[in-house]
């Protein structure tokens, strides 16, 4: 069953708040990352925490090296009296998906979603090695940048992109002259530093509302479709130059049927991945991609995906966009992908 075929309850993103991501935030613990964004998102939605029907968060223990970090983070929403709540050990975009599913049930009308991540505390490339198959991959010690570089090489070899194309993406997101970027040395060839994401700490929060609860807002960003898919883990079993899971999710989310798309927020931590994703989503040159700068500008782990959904919704909230596509990714070389289609128009 796909999200696009069956009749769904109309659900919208009605507010989005984020901390400006920074390279290293030593002053805030996880509670202090969560509290301000939750407070801001609720205020923006005109709700109190007692109004919220369901709360769900995304975070990952390994980023800070401590089990159960989400337990203290929960204090940031002050769950008293007790609340209906859940947590995914994933990017917050999947927490939003869980909330969207929950709202389909019809008995609650609002959901609060938050995500936080402090990537700066650990050695992030080594931490991400822990995501790999523990028998054949993790013991080799291959890091996240090297994995992405294997994918980038495959894309270059396919003839569908050049190193210059990668630099054009990087220049568009983070500035700089293409020729100068290309003159810099490789980090892990064929990737240069500008092709790779920064390490960032951050947090964000989103409020979802359904039906009339959403219609109270001036310009809700209606979720017209949302879907996520995963691919096999072993890189040697995948075509690294295509994001088949993104394509499937896009089909189920209705990317092709929404009409003209004004903006796309793609969670592409590496420059070549933006090209692969544009291709998988069928986005034409007319679509403004990552006006926020995307993950090449700030990449707080577990937050950056939900941020894409929030940034895309914010463009609808302020009237700059009518239809938007948002995307989140997880795992090595775009292994898992979520696609969300947002519109200022509720489904007819």
């Amino acid at each position: 069953m796909s999200a696009s075929r069956a009749r769904r309850r109309d659900v919208a993103i009605v507010s989005f708040a984020q901390l400006p991501p920074v390279r290293r935030d030593t002053a805030r613990d996880e509670t202090e990352l969560v509290q301000p964004v939750v407070t801001a998102a609720l205020r923006q939605a005109g709700l109190t925490r007692q109004d919220i029907g369901f709360t769900v968060s995304g975070s990952c223990d390994y980023l800070i090296g401590r089990p159960f970090s989400f337990v203290t983070a929960l204090d940031g929403v002050a769950p008293w009296p007790p609340i209906a709540e859940s947590h995914v050990e994933m990017d917050g975009a999947w927490a939003l998906y869980e909330a969207w599913v929950r709202l389909q049930q019809g008995d609650v009308d609002t959901a609060l979603i938050y995500a936080y991540g402090k990537s700066s505390l650990g050695d992030l490339p080594a931490v991400l090695t822990m995501q790999l198959d523990p028998y054949y991959l993790a013991p080799l010690g291959i890091d996240a940048v090297s994995l992405a570089a294997l994918q980038a090489r495959a894309l270059l070899d396919s003839g569908r992109a050049t190193e210059r194309d990668l630099a054009v993406v990087a220049a568009a997101r983070r500035g700089g002259a293409v020729a100068e970027l290309l003159a810099t040395p490789y980090l892990v060839a064929p990737l240069r530093r500008h092709d790779c994401p920064p390490i960032s700490d951050g947090a964000c929060a989103v409020v979802l509302a359904a039906g009339d609860a959403a219609r109270r807002h001036a310009r809700p960003a209606w979720i017209r479709g949302i879907d996520h898919r995963v691919e096999p883990h072993q890189l040697g079993s995948r075509d690294l130059t295509r994001s088949t899971s993104t394509a499937i999710a896009a089909e189920h989310a209705g990317v092709a049927t929404i009409g003209p798309i004004d903006v796309a927020e793609l969670h592409a931590p590496f420059s070549h991945q933006e090209l692969i994703l544009r291709d998988a989503l069928g986005l034409g040159a007319e679509v403004a991609v990552n006006p926020s700068g995307g993950a090449l500008v700030a990449n707080p782990m577990m937050v950056a995906g939900l941020t894409r959904l929030g940034e895309a919704a914010a463009r609808i909230h302020d009237g700059r966009a009518r239809n938007a596509v948002a995307h989140a990714t997880s795992g090595p070389c775009l292994q898992q992908n979520l696609v969300c289609v947002l519109s200022s128009e509720v489904a007819s």
């Binding site: 390994y62 800070i64 505390l121 050695d123």
Partner: peptide, 10 residues
């Protein structure tokens, strides 16, 4: 895995 743990201001 090496981390630099911070206590936060409070």
């Amino acid at each position: 895995l090496d981390y630099t743990v911070t206590a936060g201001r409070h």
